[in-house]
Computed example of a mutant assay.
Amino acid sequence: MSELPFAEVIGDPIAQSKSPMIHKFWLEQAGIKADYRASHVKPEDLASFFEERRRNPSWRGCNVTIPHKRAVMALLDRIDPAAERIGAVNTVVPEDGKLTGYNTDYSGFLEPLQPLLRQTHLFRMARIIGAGGAAKAVALALHDHGFTNVIIARNLDQARALRESFEPDDRLVAPLDLFATPTDFPFDDREGLLDLVVNTTSLGMTGQPPLLLDFTHVPPNAVVYDIVYAPLETPLLAEARARGLRAIDGLHMLIGQAAAAFERFFGVPAPRGRDAELRAKLTG
């Protein structure tokens, strides 16, 4: 009896991943007889893992999480240009006998912003907190959509390197500590402007220290976006909502990037008509 077609998520550790729940939910909704699983792959086993998967005709690909997003690139035959720019791969798909690496964080991050991005603005500015791998996908996505990005990080060298990857400007790099203390900066008229504040760090995540951000640094009418999804309502988002600001939680990006991967794995768009039910499952 032949094995069902399957995809998977790999990482070290991997038990915390919500990807199996998301993809199995969509497989059921789409009526596709396939499986999606989580596979614990240690760094020293990464090469042998892909050697074995290349030979498996039932394998439809994998999502890639920490700590493999960069290391996996050397083991692939092709890298999508967007993933090459980001310098990280989170989705691997067998295509025409070759393994191709993609990065769906770019499109997944942008998905909940699409209604705003379709509007015309006089100026777009993003304050991006963090300078790691997720921050680069976010920064490039926003840069490509006309945002001027300020990179805010504990490690200024890392922040400068991130800025230099798309547009060097040391004036738009700042230490995170600066944003923990109040400012008396008088924000000008923001009419026609789109301001975005994005947390790409683990600060505020369950078990991690909080993100110390004084909201005097947040422009009026800004959109606050936290890619953390555990807890779903981070202290950053809770304060944003209390101040009447628009807030976007991390499940939007998680589901958005998974949808892009699902279509590559199984050849059909992810069925998105029951997203509210899926969100309830993920937070239940």
Rank of each mutant, 00 (worst) to 15 (best):
L211K: 08
A240D: 03
L232Y: 11
T216A: 07
V218R: 11
R264I: 06
I227V: 12
V223P: 07
V268W: 08
R246H: 13
V268I: 15
L237R: 00
T234E: 04
Q257E: 10
L254V: 00
A247R: 13
T206L: 15
M253V: 00
Q257Y: 11
A222V: 08
A270S: 02
R264G: 03
F215Q: 04
L213R: 09
A240I: 10
P231L: 10
L213F: 11
G256W: 15
D249A: 07
T206P: 03
A222C: 09
P269R: 08
V223L: 11
H217D: 06
E263M: 10
D249L: 02
H252E: 14
L212T: 03
R272T: 03
P231Y: 07
L245N: 03
A240N: 02
F215T: 01
R272Q: 05
F215N: 04
M253E: 03
R246W: 15
L236M: 13
D226I: 04
Q257C: 05
L237A: 02
L211A: 02
A242W: 14
A222K: 10
I255S: 04
G267D: 07
P231S: 03
R243S: 02
G244V: 07
A261W: 14
P269V: 02
I248N: 02
A240G: 09
G207N: 09
V224L: 04
F215I: 06
G250I: 01
A261F: 06
R272V: 05
T206V: 10
Y225G: 00
T216K: 12
D214G: 01
P271M: 10
A240M: 11
H217Y: 13
E233A: 07
A261L: 06
A259K: 11
R274N: 06
A258W: 13
F262H: 05
M253P: 00
F265I: 12
N221V: 08
F266C: 01
P220V: 08
F266P: 04
G256Y: 15
A238I: 12
I227A: 00
R272P: 03
L212P: 02
A222N: 07
A259D: 04
G244A: 06
F215Y: 14
I255A: 05
G250R: 01
N221Y: 14
A260K: 14
V223I: 13
P209M: 14
E239S: 04
P231R: 03
A230I: 13
